[in-house]
Structures are given as structure tokens and as C-alpha cells.
């Protein structure tokens, strides 16, 4: 069953076409990496899925249920509020710049959304938050403010924070791009473990090693459209599209 499916998503910023007919399907348990040159619309696509950007036209399905349909910059269909919120929360997101809440400790960052958005009890939220922090290897940092954590630790807290909402799919928007090279490994390690545990993941990344080893499928985007889509072995060994070949040559 496809957890997320999009049909012909288009997105224009004024006269600039950022996304052109992007049709993507992510199955339950799949790890999909989106690669491509900067300005290809990878992040915009991810942000459109989780409603941080308004798409110009296209359809988004979550759990095979039509979630949103827009045409000519107007909403044609949108789920009712409760249902909309429920499906939106099936997606968790990790940002390039972490976006932790600086005035809350690591533990408070992870507990906040379960308490206020899911309305679960403080005690339950505390135990969930402690578990999630332990999973990302930061059990001993729970009382630290983000400013006292390294970039890698901050990003791991951000992953724990997203996981605490128990999403069905995790969206990663260049999670390691803002990190010092020596800190990239710890974040990728957490993501690998997450992938092995069966979490469905959609990852925008420049880490080709991670894309090659951890993903089930790779989507190559260029100029706002999907240029090529296949298994990691295929795409790294014999890329079909000349744009893919050019991109892979330039970074490998």
C-alpha cells in the first residue's frame, strides 16, 4: 500500500516553475532518496507534501486517501479539519537547520508536541520522550538546551522530536547539509538504524553513500521534474538520463 502518493504536483513561484508534474509513490516500509543538483525542487517537493508550501496544482494522497487537490492555485478538495490534521501528522519532518526550540531542553523539545498537539498525559509524554532520546543515543543530554549541543546532537534531538509524534513516514530535508563533516556520521547512523527498523522514509540528501546503501529506490530530480527513478544499483552503475550521468560525474 502506498503511504504517500502524489499526482502531477506543480508549483510556481510567480513565473518560475519550481515543480513540474511530479508524480511519486512511496510504499510502506520503503526508503526513498531524492537526489539532484541544487535548485531542482527537491526541498520544495518535500515541503509541499507536509504543507509548508502551497502547491499550484496536483493531488496528494496519504494512506490512499485523497488529502489535498489543488488546481490553478485554488483548493479543489481538502479533508475536513480533524481528518486533515490526523493525516498531516502521519508525516514527520526533519529540517536542514534542525529548528529545535532554543528555549526548551532536549527533553522538553521532544515532549512538547505529544502533550499539546496529541493531548497525551505529561507522564506518558515523558516516557515516550525518554525512549526516543535513548534511541538516538542522547539519553544523557535530556536536560541540555540546544545551544549546548553539537550540530549532530541537535539534529538527533530533532529526529527524536519528530519520532515522538509516531509518524508513519519521515521526511528528511537535507538533514546533514548544515553539519560539520565529522558530525555527519552520527546523524546518518541514526537514520540507517531507523531505516532498518522498517520506518518509511523520504530523504532529500547529498550524501551519496547513504543513498547508495540505505535506500530502496532513488529519485533523481532536475529542473523541477523527475529525470530518473530506479534502484540505487541501477542509477549509480548505469544512469540512463544524461542529466543524471552529468550530476553523478560531478560529485563522485
Amino acid at each position: 500500500m502506498a503511504l504517500i502518493r502524489t499526482e502531477n504536483i506543480c508549483k510556481n513561484f510567480a513565473h518560475l516553475e519550481v515543480l513540474k508534474d511530479v508524480t511519486v509513490k512511496v510504499e510502506q516500509g520503503e526508503v526513498v532518496c531524492i537526489i539532484g543538483p541544487s535548485g531542482a525542487g527537491k526541498s520544495t517537493f518535500l515541503r509541499s507534501l507536509i504543507q509548508l508550501e502551497k502547491i499550484t496544482s496536483g493531488k496528494i494522497f496519504i494512506d490512499e486517501e485523497l488529502f489535498l487537490e489543488r488546481r490553478d492555485n485554488a483548493t479543489v478538495f481538502r479533508l475536513e479539519h480533524e481528518e486533515y490534521k490526523r493525516l498531516l501528522l502521519e508525516m514527520g519532518m526533519v529540517f536542514q537547520s534542525f529548528n529545535l526550540f532554543p528555549h526548551k531542553t532536549a527533553l522538553e523539545n521532544v515532549m512538547l508536541a505529544p502533550i499539546h498537539a496529541k493531548k497525551i498525559s505529561k507522564a506518558d509524554a515523558l516516557s515516550i520522550a525518554r525512549d526516543r532520546l535513548a534511541e538516538v543515543g542522547l539519553a544523557d543530554k535530556e536536560d541540555q538546551y540546544p545551544s549546548r549541543l553539537s550540530g549532530g546532537q541537535q539534529q538527533r534531538v530533532a529526529i527524536a522530536r519528530a519520532l515522538a509524534m509516531e509518524p508513519k513516514i519521515m521526511l528528511f530535508d537535507e538533514p546533514t547539509s548544515a553539519l560539520d563533516p565529522e558530525l555527519v556520521g552520527e546523524v546518518l547512523g541514526v537514520m540507517r538504524r531507523l531505516a532498518e527498523s522498517g520506518m518509511t522514509m523520504l530523504v532529500v540528501t547529498h550524501e551519496m553513500g547513504f543513498a547508495k546503501e540505505a535506500s530502496d529506490r532513488i529519485i533523481f530530480m532536475a529542473d523541477g521534474a523527475i529525470a530518473e527513478e530506479s534502484s540505487p544499483e541501477e542509477i549509480f552503475a548505469n544512469p540512463v538520463n544524461p542529466r543524471t550521468r552529468q550530476f553523478l560525474n560531478s560529485i563522485l
Partner: peptide, 9 residues
Amino acid sequence: EASSVLGLT
């Protein structure tokens, strides 16, 4: 953005 994706009003 972080608040929004975490479902806060």
C-alpha cells in the same frame, strides 16, 4: 515551520 509540522495550532 517546526511547530506547524508537529501539529501545533
